[in-house]
Amino acid sequence: MTIIQFVLLGAALFSIGLYGVLTRKNAVLVLASVELMLAAVNVNLVAFDVYLGDASHAGQIMTLFLIALAAAEVGIGIAIVLLVFRNRRSANIDELDVMRY
């Protein structure tokens, strides 16, 4: 196995996540696309941890921290989406254009 196959998979996941963030209308799906990008970073961290043969497993520890941060981010994100929905009766980000003009 080579290192680039894992890094290329991570790059592909990150690019797909970026596409989703840019094109999805529904705020929950934008958050799901952000999760894709975070999963791509996780793949990179674990692959480089094994590649470098780090005895202290810094890459895997960072991955665990990233998972905890991602869970916190989703919790806050869904709370904000819920608040926006309660005020605007919609969770579509293209309808949130009050500050646009």
Binding site: M1, T2, I3, I4, F6, V7, L8, A11, A47, V50, Y51, G53
Partner: peptide, 14 residues
């Protein structure tokens, strides 16, 4: 960038 820097370097599986 990845291919240019790592080429086909093998990952040493534990």
């Amino acid at each position: 960038a990845v291919v240019a820097s790592f080429g086909a370097a093998a990952i040493p599986l534990p």
